[in-house]
Design a protein around this nucleic acid. Sequence first.
DNA 1: GTGAAAGCGCTAACAC
DNA 2: GTGTTAGCGCTTTCAC
Lengths: 348, 348
Amino acid sequence: MDQNGKRKARATLVEVAELALVSKSTVSRVINEDAAVSEEARQRVLDAIRATGYRVNQSARALVSNKTGAIAVAIYEQLATYFTSSFSGAMVTALQDFFFERDLQVLILPAPNRERQKRIEKYIYEGHVDGAILLGPVREDILLSDLLSAQVPIVVGGRPIGSDSVSYVDIDNAKASELAVQELIRSGRKTIGFITGQLSNASATDRLRGYKLAIDGSDARDDETLIGIADWGYESAAIATRKLLELHPELDAIFCSNDLMATAAIAVIRDSGRKIPEDIAVIGFDDSPIALRTTPQLTSVAQSPEDYARALGENLLKQMSGEDLSPKPVILPTQIVWRDSFKPENHK
Amino acid sequence: MDQNGKRKARATLVEVAELALVSKSTVSRVINEDAAVSEEARQRVLDAIRATGYRVNQSARALVSNKTGAIAVAIYEQLATYFTSSFSGAMVTALQDFFFERDLQVLILPAPNRERQKRIEKYIYEGHVDGAILLGPVREDILLSDLLSAQVPIVVGGRPIGSDSVSYVDIDNAKASELAVQELIRSGRKTIGFITGQLSNASATDRLRGYKLAIDGSDARDDETLIGIADWGYESAAIATRKLLELHPELDAIFCSNDLMATAAIAVIRDSGRKIPEDIAVIGFDDSPIALRTTPQLTSVAQSPEDYARALGENLLKQMSGEDLSPKPVILPTQIVWRDSFKPENHK
DNA sequence: GTGAAAGCGCTAACAC
DNA sequence: GTGTTAGCGCTTTCAC
């Protein structure tokens, strides 16, 4: 069998059947724990499988059953960058748990740029997977192209900019942001800075919108220069905070679009000799573990990674079962987790 | 076609062929840019593909061609944890680049625990992918089970503990570590601490071995309590360093098994009021970007993520082509990148 | 409870 | 250049 050093060919169903003295139908039944098979035949088949080292050929199975048993989780960003947010990390882990329990394999597909995104979309619609979850800054123009017309079950995490022809799960970013800023205003803060992440991202624009809404309906200072633009990362947020402090020495609160940026803000504020929350109150977004590691600990707007993952998973499963094909958004609630960087009672 | 609201069935080769008035062979040729096809026929086929929205069925193609066009990169660790090391992040990115250029799709498979590892190994040997790269703390007993007997092309990143029946790529951890410690000794340091990562990991044990080798052949203090055990992370390394400083106030150097832990060591040393490198020299491992962000900047033992990725990729490709099936290690060289936390001229 | 037979959608000889 | 044909390895009716 192995005459000239070649790799031994993989055993097939037929070979197992021959060795077990049954038909390949019976072998198939045993493998799939399907219909009733006599215990005797079952044992013979199991032995033959062991003897031949048989493994099912997934391509063949997928061809006939039209199922691959795999789910793509495409991440439209550099992986290392994506996983710096601990919300993302926890969420992807929860996603894996969700599908693991349902016997589906999660494939993480990194799509850091346009070229790769195209390739991954091709990978998805050519039938390597039964469905896909798209994470990160997904843009409509990229999405709509081939993926939607291919009718593959798809759910996006976070509302894709400008798109309403695809299912997505998101939190009410604008509302969450508005509520947080309102709390700052209620405590008597008047000059409230805002540090935003990249505005190519829908959640960034929504959180910014919420901030503006809260400011608009109040007596707090309304000034475009109170908005610092960063990129979700530490460095850029530190720079933005420094600039804010220079421009507005009377600043008495900062709301940040994520916790990592709030960490930077806290460091810069403390370096400047100001006290938190007495002089400047700080609120972050995501309630990630780093919110516990700052001094003082960070008040943050929370979303549950587990709930988020479950919402994504269930939506996808529904589409995969053909139950519910109309695109629909799922909006998840948030709440503020109060810590020392700002509490409602910290009046100014 | 879409009578009762059902999803429109996907077009097949035959339908395209009928519409284009050619045989399915010709359609196949056009799709695969294969043999010569008359320009006229080619256009008709292309039009028909567009008209029908045809997409190749990967399962069918894989069944007959015995190729999936995908490579698994299994990560035997929590993804978020794995990507905290910037070497890992850069390496995986380089790996993606490597395979992208060769038209192979990289699938990241997170295998944080035994249960998942089993599932992923099954996924691999059932033929979803053409080959696999295993990263993280891979253990022999897990590996050898089914994967090797299934004869799937496999390369491991980092020598798996106790295994020699699988190809792997690694740096010469022991040698690299020994050289770094020898430099410390040569500069006159006598009480050299070592902070190790989890010893379940082969590179951790090798780096520790190199440290011991260097100490053994020298007049530096040989004392088990100079070895601090941490888990590659910041917190545990900070604790280990503090303990080291308490136990050995005369400590004049610390060598850390990775840069993140060296960062922690630096912070603790500076907190204690000691100067780097005057009082205590510090060397890290990996030359990751954080080595540039410490004060002082960190001297570190370097391995190139790109070279590492290329070595993994080429080894795997060789196995996939059937060229080279014998398991063999590839050992990559390292060098010390000198920065301010220690230089050869910083004599004690 | 079991087997025979059809066929999933594609590629790859092999003729013409 | 193009069509015909024979499978790839599996699941799944449908008889028995």
